[in-house]
């Protein structure tokens, strides 16, 4: 999320700055990566995703909760149509 925010990637708002409190960094993890990235990392992430503006799918994550490591080099995510109404 921070990588997107500081580099002006549109479609990820991340307005709370990665604090697990806003659900405006919603993304869909590409099918080839879902096993490696995993699902929501906490109950709070799952609860916040429930309030996401766009459709929530099994591969939905809040991108602020995906810690980028060498293990995820090449990760493909897609962004929802909107992060809020």
């Amino acid at each position: 999320m921070r990588g997107a925010l500081y580099n002006g990637v549109e479609g990820i708002i991340g307005e709370c700055g990665g604090g697990l409190s806003c659900a405006t960094c919603h993304c869909y993890v590409d099918a080839a990566w879902t096993a490696r990235v995993g699902g929501p990392s906490s109950p709070a992430e799952r609860e916040l995703l429930d309030g996401a503006a766009a459709e929530v799918r099994p591969e939905s994550r809040l991108s602020c909760q995906i810690a980028m490591t060498a293990h995820l080099d090449g990760l493909v995510v897609r962004l929802p149509e909107k992060q809020y109404d």
Partner: peptide, 23 residues
């Protein structure tokens, strides 16, 4: 309570930059 956006630090582009520090 289930986690939901609170407004203590406002929201939007001007969401409080010190929110994590305050927490």
């Amino acid at each position: 309570r289930p986690r939901k956006t609170i407004l203590a630090f406002t929201v939007g582009a001007h969401s409080c930059m010190g929110a994590h520090l305050a927490r």
